[in-house]
């Protein structure tokens, strides 16, 4: 597989300091050994609930912060240790689209200057930068005249397109999309998603698509990684993951997403997980999902489940994956796992 982007055992922790002398009183385990691979021109969707580390992973890939250990590689070149000229050329290859269309554009810069700035930094399109800025706007479905306008004159969806144009300005290979449509209304969201799809086909882009909305991820991704508390619990080709999830968490997550179809929605078998995600300050031992899992056994508390390859390209980190469980012991009363919550 010609892999463009690779993460190997990435660890990122944040110290928590408190008190008069700012002593370290704890550690947020944001990423605890995350490995993944995104083939060129494909989209890897990363899903999970808040605090699962998906955004930290995205920001590590674009080097918005350093990682504590492990490695992130782009065509074998290490991202985490690049500096100086290497870092600059890396910045050209990996770009990011941000979540908040209202915060991701500088209110003081015209759309044109924002796009031209990206070109200036890397010395691109010298002599024809304003033309290039207009081309970029057209690429994302906006009118070229918009170059002279300011961000506040645009709607959320339009701003998100501008953010995409800015990322495209440096002709990157990889774009990390961090919740690009979660702030948009449904009627506008589809346009942005379709645009992203079109651009990928046109330019052969590789996407890392971070989102909490599984339906959106399903629409755009070739492969999906599910994260829980700083670890990947399952990764599988999209169709496979949604049809036959292996990890209990994936199964619960899928069953919790409301489906806009009253008959389907009311007749679904729903797994209601008890409690909330435990704090990343003090994650459970062994399998981090065990405190909310209806299949948890003693082994889950002591032994960290590793990602194992299962059928059809699925890899799951579970001691009791669905396909190996004889009679599915579906949770009739998951309240008993309440202990771990809070």
């Amino acid at each position: 597989m010609s892999s463009t982007l690779e993460a190997i055992d990435v660890v990122k922790e944040y110290p928590v300091r408190s008190g008069l002398f700012r002593r370290r009183t704890g550690t947020v385990h944001a990423l605890s050994g995350v490995s993944l691979e995104v083939p060129k021109g494909k989209t890897l969707g990363i899903v999970g609930e808040s605090g699962c580390g998906k955004s930290t992973l995205g920001r590590s890939i674009v080097r918005l912060h350093d990682i504590d250990s492990g490695s992130i590689r782009l065509d074998g070149e290490s991202v985490e240790s690049a500096s100086g000229q290497d870092l600059r050329s890396l910045r050209r290859r990996v770009q990011m689209v941000f979540q908040d269309p209202y915060a991701s554009l500088n209110p003081r810069l015209t759309i044109g200057s924002a796009l031209i700035e990206a070109l200036e930094i890397h010395g691109l399109a010298a002599g024809r930068r304003s033309e290039r800025a207009q081309e970029l706007l057209e690429m994302v479905g906006l009118r070229p005249e918009f170059v002279q306008r300011y961000p506040h004159e645009f709607s959320g969806g339009q701003r998100q397109r501008i953010g995409i144009a800015r990322a495209l300005a440096v002709e990157p290979e990889v774009i990390v999309l961090d919740e690009p449509v979660s702030a948009l209304d449904v009627s506008v969201q589809a346009g942005v998603l379709n645009q992203l799809k079109e651009l990928q086909d046109l330019l052969g882009l590789t996407y890392v698509f971070i989102a909490h909305d599984l339906s959106v991820v399903r629409y755009l991704s070739d492969e999906v990684a599910v994260m829980y508390l700083g670890r990947i619990v399952e990764t599988a080709p999209t169709g496979r993951l949604f049809a036959a999830p292996e990890h209990p968490y994936t199964k619960a997550l899928l069953s919790a997403v409301p489906i806009p179809d009253p008959i389907v929605e009311r007749s679904r078998e729903r797994i209601t997980l008890s409690g909330d995600v435990p704090s990343p300050l003090n994650p459970p031992s062994g399998c981090r999902f065990r405190t909310r899992c209806w299949k948890a056994t003693e082994r889950c508390a002591t032994e960290i489940p590793l990602l194992r390859t299962m059928a059809d390209g699925t890899r799951a980190a579970c001691h009791h994956p669905e396909s190996e469980t004889q009679s599915p012991t579906d949770p009739t009363d998951s309240q008993r796992t309440e202990a771990g919550a809070q």
Partner: peptide
Amino acid sequence: EFVDAAIVLG
């Protein structure tokens, strides 16, 4: 985020 965006742009 626009500051992050500028940093990511180099």
